[in-house]
Computed example of a mutant assay.
Amino acid sequence: MTATKGYDNKTVQAIRGTEDRAIAKWEAAGWQLVNREQGAFRTALTFRRSRPKKSLAAAAALTFLLLVAVGGLIIGLIFGDDENTTARPTAATASSSPADVASSAQPSAPTPSESTWEETEDADLNFEETARFRSTAGNSDIPLEITVGSPVSFTPSKAATVFDARAAVGGEAGELHEANVYFTVTIRNLSTSQAFEPDFVFSDVTKTGADDQVSVVLEGDVVGMIGWPQVIAPGGAFILKDGYSVQDATAIEYTLDIDGLAGQSFHFSH
């Protein structure tokens, strides 16, 4: 997220054909669409919103309170009783043993995830393995764990939504091919304080026998990448099914991009 005078700016990458859903999501959160740039597979949507203006009255009141506090401190130093200038131990301090004081001064032990968690260096993994990635988009520092399950065959109905994943213009209707599979994708947010926004999580498949003929399939609980929530809460997880229709899924490889171009791509296969 960037900032200009009086505004905060945010750019979101949306899969072609899903722009309206992304726009509605961010406008509901108080952002205004100011620009859209269409790419081959994704559209960059730029939003902005006004920064809250600081209240002059509140600022003046805070300044007055600070002046009063400083004035009171100065008067206390000048006219204060010498006998009161020497700090006296409180009953709690006097009753505390040296061992108690030493124990309370030590920091609490880190949780296992903080002490043992390391990023995954190898981008090529097997299905069911877990990739570890630290999202640093914006000012965040969020450790994530990503797991992708093996492809599962399914039969889409005539009511399924099918997009051509290779169309130059997003949102083009696609066709069903010989093999239809979905992948179960799980993202766990291990941060204890920061929510993760999965706006820059994208997927693709290769080694399909004809990589130029691939369709995205959406139906029922197979919701694809547009099914991510607005945020994944600290300590939370989210699971979705990502569906594809391809010529051959025997040796299919699934790619998941995290944090867009600034992040990393993980490849899952058998």
Score class of each variant (00 low, 15 high):
F163W: 13
V231T: 15
V152G: 01
T120D: 09
A105I: 12
V169G: 04
A29L: 14
A44D: 15
A262Q: 06
R134L: 07
S50C: 00
G224E: 02
G209H: 11
V162I: 15
E253A: 14
V148I: 12
T208H: 09
W31H: 00
S97H: 10
I23W: 01
A24R: 04
T120M: 02
S153I: 07
E114R: 09
L67Y: 10
I146D: 02
S104Y: 15
P234W: 07
I23V: 15
Q194D: 14
A165W: 03
R132F: 09
I146F: 07
I142Q: 08
R134C: 05
D8L: 13
N84V: 01
D212G: 03
T161N: 00
V205M: 09
F268G: 03
I15L: 13
A195D: 11
W26N: 04
R42N: 13
P107F: 03
G39L: 09
V217F: 02
F154D: 10
Q194E: 15
P229V: 14
T4P: 00
A69T: 13
S203W: 00
V185A: 02
S245D: 10
A57W: 14
T155N: 14
V222M: 07
F163V: 01
A14E: 11
S215R: 00
A233F: 09
Q38L: 11
K207F: 02
N126M: 09
A94G: 08
K54E: 14
A99N: 04
L218S: 00
A102C: 00
A69S: 14
Q194W: 03
N180F: 01
T255R: 10
T4D: 14
T63N: 12
P234V: 03
I146N: 06
F127E: 06
G224V: 01
K5L: 15
A92W: 01
P89A: 14
V181W: 08
E253H: 07
F266P: 03
K53M: 08
E19A: 04
V185D: 01
G263C: 04
S50D: 11
A24S: 07
G236V: 02
R188N: 12
I75A: 15
A167T: 06
P143F: 03
A3Q: 12
P143V: 09
T63A: 15
E27W: 00
E19N: 01
T206N: 02
G138N: 10
P98R: 06
L56M: 10
N35L: 08
Q13V: 05
F238V: 08
G30Q: 07
T208R: 07
L67E: 14
A102F: 09
F41A: 13
Q106G: 05
D242V: 04
T250H: 10
D257G: 00
V68L: 15
A167S: 15
S193M: 02
Q38I: 10
G17C: 04
T43K: 06
S191D: 11
S265E: 05
